[in-house]
């Protein structure tokens, strides 16, 4: 998995690509929680090039959202491939996370 932090229209976007599995999740957690602790909000996560997410990845975003909510920040998930979205939907987390069809939708929301 690769992680790139970019900025678009003044909003921070974490671009992810590859598989978010048990090897990748600790690295992702470190990046995500660093941004959360800095109070970066809104933080948009670009899932466009994510091919797979396992339960460790989901747990990492749960932890990230919990950290954001503690100070009223916003974590926005965008451009989820259908297989990834299915995992969020199955666990009913699609009703908890803010999920957007595209990066632009997430930025403009």
């Amino acid at each position: 998995m690769t992680i790139i932090l970019i900025e678009k229209y003044g909003k921070k976007i974490l671009e992810l690509s590859g598989e978010i599995d048990m090897n990748a999740s600790p690295v992702l957690r470190k990046e995500l929680m660093t941004l959360v602790k800095k109070g970066v909000t809104p933080l948009v996560i670009d899932f466009n090039n994510v091919s797979y997410i396992d339960s460790s990845g989901i747990a990492t975003f749960v932890e990230g959202l919990k950290g954001m909510m503690a100070f009223g920040g916003k974590l926005k998930l965008a451009a989820l491939p259908s297989a990834v979205k299915e995992i969020f939907s199955f666990s009913k987390l699609d009703r908890v996370f803010e999920i957007y069809g595209s990066i632009d939708d997430a930025i403009n929301s």
Partner: peptide, 8 residues
Amino acid sequence: HTKLEEST
């Protein structure tokens, strides 16, 4: 078997 944080 993993290097996941205890919180995760």
